[in-house]
Design a protein around this nucleic acid. Structure first.
Lengths: 341, 341
DNA sequence: AACTGTCTCGAAAACGTTTTCGTGTTGAAA
DNA sequence: TTTCAACACGAAAACGTTTTCGAGACAGTT
């Protein structure tokens, strides 16, 4: 077991100074051709690689960014990670992934732990609990220390920073309008409780579409789901009692559950009921029938977020850099599949 | 924007030495009650937190581990991440996630990049390409440097280290036997090409079960899938021409695709054909009918791997620690759902 | 008055780099 | 012979910690 070799060891072995070794390896012209060759050969032989931690300390840069997501089980978030990873790797950055598990405390702990020099910047999507509490002090604190933060998907107006979002309201509007265009009037909604920012926005889009088409909003066919424990029952009740002609679900799980319940009730999709989902995940794609859905394009969001963060990181050394915060809107797309007529 | 405060700054401000500040904050008895109070108050006021990088350099420990997975899109791997995350957090470790994208080169680059001090140890599952090439020099090198590695799921006998696996052969045997017990004899197999270690093992288990029950292995109903491009066609051909009574698929995607194809061909599942999958992912659970499957328990694998790695990390400081490498086998479970009679 | 011990504190090394600023040696020009 | 540039290299600081060791001040004991 040969431990990693350091500059000091090479210097000792070759009976030169540490500086000479360092300069030789960086091909400095200060050092004679002879010495350079000698040092480089030795370094190669012993497979010398500079210690990243020492470099980080010296440069005050870690070349590492952290992405904090509420849940890794949601396929959407894994696609975002994937996008972030790609761009980060391309630019020579590493990615630390942290899970907040939808918990405020875990979010705070993770941020505080990493903000002390471990990373250069954050990409994050708020946990449900944080959104409910509306307590963002941990984020403002980090930003005040001069560490850039990019928020995505679940964002808040209370914080000034770069953001990457989709137009949730518009996308929901489009989904609803799509159903209306098919001739449906009784369109059920499966959504989250209001404090989840995206859920609220999607509900708004749904409502807007109905109103614009002179359809009365019927609160009996709007189901707001708090926890996933009993929601299959809620869906069953909606489909069997209210019998909507179509259903718009604000996420994939809700959509596929609706599909499942429909099957159980003997309803044929899309003949008896149309279903449209949100988030173009693996479930929608592989379920049968495949589910028509609004594609959220997590990869693009991740890529964009990473690019914004890294750009800020690389530019902030420039004296006069004081760019305004931007909010990028990633376009969504309605992917028509088999669950709608 | 107030930058992070350091010991040096506090020392200067309070007109004491850096040592005194450090000791005060760690509540050393060397320092008088008075001074300690003063320093601590000041530190709290300015929200002092020690710089992690400096600590890492000093302690030669980063309290960070890296997990390298081939693909984040496979739900199984995200569950493993989730397991690793939990245990790591609990023990005060951070997790860096790297994706090899099934590429040998990316795997090598990732490892070399992080092995230079950035992390304390690796958890990894081999990429397809690495398994095909059988080139593991990057891994042995890391191990030789004294950095612990834990491999999971896709492992190799060519490397000595801690491992966490399932008994793929046995699990596949059980799945096949389960179908045989239902009275099926013509059981199709959807598997990977042989160089994917787990695919090969699962194929072996399937064969073993057939032989033990005096069923001849029919290579016409064994489909080895190389890339996912055309495999829907391959599956269609299997189901429509060979008409197996049941199908065993070695992963979730294959299983759900079989389900989809069956639907398209007008075959009712499980009435006309039974399907059993592998890996208890989100797709199997939410598809309709829900797919009977072998549960691989990624969370447990991740937790176990993280525990093994951290144990080695915390014990290796002890002089006499020279524990043998262990291979832990996580038990699998057959989860019966709706896709089998 | 000399010695001993305790209480506080600071200097300095160490972790592994990079970089600035000397400094000694050489050869050539004046 | 003196002067000066060019060349090749080393010492040391810096990044932010922790920790060992030494040392000054003071009180108490002979």
């Amino acid at each position: 077991m040969k431990r990693k070799v350091t500059l000091k060891q090479i210097a000792k072995e070759l009976d030169v100074s540490i500086s000479t070794v360092s300069k030789s390896l960086r091909n400095s012209l200060e050092i004679s051709e002879d010495t350079r060759q000698k040092v480089q050969a030795f370094a190669k032989l012993y497979n010398y690689k500079p210690n990243n931690i020492a470099l980080s300390l010296k440069n005050k840069k870690t070349k590492t960014i952290c992405i904090i997501i509420p849940e890794i089980i949601h396929h959407f978030f894994t696609t975002v990670i994937s996008g972030v990873e790609h761009v980060a790797n391309e630019k020579g950055y590493n990615v630390i992934v942290c899970l907040s598990d939808e918990s405020f405390d875990k979010e705070v702990i993770n941020m505080e732990m990493l903000a002390n020099g471990s990373i250069d910047g954050f990409i994050l999507s708020l946990s449900k609990e944080t959104q409910a509490k509306k307590d963002f002090h941990h984020i403002t604190e980090v930003i005040n220390q001069g560490m850039p933060v990019v928020m995505f998907d679940r964002v808040t107006n209370d914080i000034l920073c770069d953001k990457v979002i989709i137009d949730d309201s518009l996308a929901a509007f489009n989904a609803t309008q799509f159903l209306i265009d098919k001739g449906f009037k009784k369109i059920g909604l499966l959504t989250t409780v209001d404090y989840v920012s995206v859920g609220k926005l999607r509900t708004e889009g749904y409502t807007k579409a109905l109103l614009l088409n002179d359809i009365k909003v019927d609160y009996n066919i709007i189901v707001k789901i708090e926890d996933t424990e009993y929601f299959e029952n809620q869906v069953t009740e909606l489909l069997s009692n209210q019998k909507p002609e179509a259903v718009f679900a604000v996420n994939e799980i809700f959509a596929v559950t609706a599909l499942k319940v429909a099957h159980k009730l003997g309803l044929k999709v899309p003949q008896d009921i149309s279903i449209i989902g949100f988030t173009d995940g693996i479930i929608s794609k592989y379920s049968s029938p495949a589910i028509t859905t609004i594609s959220q394009n997590g990869i693009k969001m991740g890529e964009k977020a990473a690019r914004m963060l890294i750009e800020r990181l690389e530019n902030e050394e420039l004296e006069d850099y004081e760019e305004q915060y931007k909010t990028e809107v990633i376009e969504t797309e309605l992917i028509q599949r088999e669950s709608t007529t």
